[in-house]
């Protein structure tokens, strides 16, 4: 995190002198097209606009809160390459969202077998019904992960979710109003401000035990 800030400070120090010279040359050309007294006014206006634009662009590069949240996720797990199987249980859309820079997801998360374990479960249907009553079904992979790309389905919030596999159906009681990562609300451990991880089997006595994932 500190390194990001150090880089930003360096950028702010180095870019303005470079930028001012570039803007000056560019605006001199623009102003050259205008004649007489209008020429200097055009030059000043051009330079001011470019400076403001550059300042806005620079400030937009940094979101320390987002950077901090990403940094807290830590590195990749040993032996798991970035891809559909990586980082189960983490807030996917932190990186796979409009601020993250990775391919964007409409919704993503991880499903585990039960509340007590962190064993992922594959082939679970994740059914989403949005406020327009449109339905989309995603499927978990062997890491328990599922993800929906905007080109596949862009839900209109609020959305209602349910999980099913075989004869087991688990419906989420509350709708989701805007969070696109399951673990945004379903982080571990379960606490006063978190519902605990997403799971399929609530009662192993009455609900059949299902074969679990093969990739781990």
């Amino acid at each position: 995190m500190k390194r990001v800030h150090d880089w930003l400070i360096l950028l702010h120090a180095v870019l303005p002198p470079l930028g001012v010279r570039t803007f000056k040359l560019f605006c001199l050309k623009v102003a050259g097209a205008a004649r007489g007294a209008a020429s200097s006014a055009v030059f000043m206006r051009c330079k001011n606009l470019l400076s403001i634009g550059a300042a806005c662009a620079l400030s937009a590069c940094a979101d320390p809160v987002h950077d901090d949240a990403v940094a807290k996720l830590g590195g990749e797990e040993a032996g798991v390459r970035p891809g559909p199987l990586h980082r189960p249980g983490q807030p996917c859309v932190l990186c796979h969202g409009d601020k993250g820079g990775e391919s964007e997801f409409s919704l993503a998360g991880t499903v585990y077998v039960d509340a007590a374990s962190k064993t992922p479960i594959e082939d679970v249907n994740v059914t989403i019904i949005d406020s327009q009553n449109r339905q989309f079904v995603a499927h978990t992979n062997c890491a328990g992960n599922f993800f929906i790309k905007p080109e596949e389905f862009e839900p209109d919030f609020p959305i209602w979710l349910s999980l099913d596999r075989g004869s087991v159906l688990r419906e989420m009681e509350t709708p989701v109003y805007r969070e696109r990562s399951c673990s945004g609300c379903h982080g571990d451990p379960k606490s006063l401000s978190s519902a605990g991880h997403v799971f399929l089997i609530e009662d192993p006595v009455t609900e059949p035990l299902l074969p679990v994932s093969r990739c781990r």
């Binding site: 009681e173 509350t174 709708p175 989701v176 109003y177 805007r178 969070e179 945004g184 609300c185 006063l192 401000s193 978190s194 519902a195």
Partner: peptide, 28 residues
């Protein structure tokens, strides 16, 4: 609680109009 207080909205400890209860943020 049903419409406003989910954990992604007013069931967050960092929000104003903080609401507590079943299905959202809990107060113990």
């Amino acid at each position: 609680q049903r419409r406003c207080a989910t954990l992604d909205c007013h069931g967050q400890a960092t929000r104003n109009l903080r609401l507590y209860g079943y299905g959202g943020l809990r107060l113990s």
